[in-house]
C-alpha cells in the first residue's frame, strides 16, 4: 500500500464548518486514513482511534479556536491527547485540518517519521504534548487551564483533553480530577472515550468503572453524557461546556470501538492490532472508500 493511497480524498485542508453532513464526511475520511495508516505501519491501535473520529473532527473542524497555519498561535485553544495510543486519529485530524501534508500519514511508525508511535511534542506541528503512558493528560490540561483562568486571567481560551475509559484506572487521573474541581477550572473540557474496552477485555471486567457520572460529579465536575459518534451531540456538548464557567466539564462520550468497520466494532482485540492488507481493503470498503 503506497503512500499516495492516502490521498484519494481531495488533498486540501478541510475548513471549519457548522454543517453536520460535512463534519460526518470529514470523520469518515479520517477513519479511512486511520485504517490505511495502521495497515501500512503494520502495527498500531485502530479500535479506539476509529471510535474517536467524530470527537476529534468536531473539535478541530468546529469547536476549537486554532490556526493550522500557525500551530503556536498564542491565542489558540489547546488540546491534550492523553490516550496517546490513539495517535492515528490525532495525526489524521491534524493532517486533514492542514497542519502537515496528508501524504505524510503514510510514514506512521516508520524510522525517521515525525509520526511517532505515540505523539511526541516538538517534531510534528499541532501536537501539544508527549503522551502514551496513561493518566497524565488531564493534569497537564488542568495546569494549562489553571494558568489561563487563575493566573493570567485569560477568559476566552479553552483547554481540552481526551482520555480513554480504561485510562481511568490510573490514579493520576483522580488526582487531576480533585485538582480541577478545587480550582474551579471552568475553561477545562475533558472527554472520556467511553467505548467499554481495554487491552485485557471489557472495562467493567478488568476494573469496573461503574457510575462515571456520579464519580465526576462528586469531584465537583459538570458532567455530560453523549453519543460520541454523533457530530451534532458532540458539537452541542462542547458549546454547553464552554458556557459552564464555574466548573470543569467532563463529557462522557459513548463511542463504538472500531466504529464503521463491522469486524472491528465492539471487539477489544482490535484495541492494538493492525489489519492485514485484505482486512484493510474490507475495512475501507465498509467505510465507503476506494480499497
Amino acid at each position: 500500500m503506497s503512500d499516495d493511497v492516502m490521498t484519494d480524498e481531495a488533498v486540501r485542508a478541510f475548513a471549519r464548518t457548522d454543517d453536520e453532513a460535512e463534519l460526518r464526511k470529514i470523520a469518515q475520511v479520517i477513519r479511512r486514513d486511520i485504517v490505511r495508516m495502521v495497515a501500512t505501519a503494520g502495527s498500531g491501535h485502530p479500535g479506539g482511534a476509529l471510535g474517536m473520529a467524530e470527537l476529534l473532527t468536531v473539535l478541530y473542524f468546529n469547536g476549537m479556536r486554532h490556526d493550522p497555519r500557525d500551530p503556536g498561535w498564542p491565542d489558540r485553544d489547546v488540546f491534550f491527547l492523553s490516550n496517546g495510543h490513539t495517535a492515528p486519529v490525532l495525526y489524521a485530524t491534524l493532517a486533514r485540518a492542514g497542519y502537515f501534508p496528508v501524504a505524510e500519514l503514510g510514514t506512521l511508525r516508520q524510522l525517521g517519521s515525525r509520526l511517532q508511535g505515540h505523539p511526541e511534542r516538538g517534531t510534528l506541528p499541532g501536537v501539544e504534548s508527549t503522551s502514551g503512558p496513561l493518566g497524565s493528560g488531564l493534569s497537564q490540561a488542568a495546569g494549562y487551564a489553571h494558568v489561563l483562568r487563575n493566573i493570567d486571567q485569560v477568559r476566552h481560551r479553552f483547554v481540552y483533553t481526551m482520555m480513554g475509559d480504561g485510562e481511568l484506572d490510573e490514579g493520576n487521573v483522580w488526582e487531576a480530577a480533585m485538582f480541577a474541581g478545587k480550582y474551579r477550572l471552568g475553561n477545562l473540557i475533558g472527554f472520556i472515550d467511553r467505548n467499554n474496552i481495554q487491552i485485557d477485555g471489557a472495562t467493567e471486567d478488568v476494573m469496573p468503572l461503574t457510575d462515571l457520572r456520579a464519580k465526576w460529579e462528586s469531584f465537583d465536575w459538570h458532567v455530560l453524557e453523549i453519543d460520541g459518534n454523533n457530530v451534532r451531540a458532540v458539537a452541542d456538548a462542547i458549546g454547553l461546556s464552554k458556557a459552564v464557567s464555574w466548573a470543569p466539564t467532563m463529557i462522557i462520550a459513548q463511542t463504538v470501538p472500531g466504529k464503521g468497520v463491522p469486524f472491528m466494532e465492539y471487539d477489544h482485540r482490535w484495541h492494538g492490532m493492525a489489519p492485514s492488507p485484505a482486512q484493510a481493503e474490507q475495512a475501507l470498503c465498509a467505510l465507503g472508500g476506494v480499497a
Partner: peptide
C-alpha cells in the same frame, strides 16, 4: 499567593500539572 499551587499529597499530579503550566509559558 496567586502564583503558588497547592496540589495536595499527589506528586504525580504535581509534576504533570507543572508540565501543563510550563506549556502555558510558566517556569514551574
Amino acid at each position: 499567593p496567586d502564583r503558588f499551587v497547592e496540589v495536595g499529597i499527589a506528586e504525580q499530579n504535581m509534576v504533570t500539572v507543572a508540565a501543563g503550566m510550563a506549556h502555558a509559558g510558566k517556569i514551574p
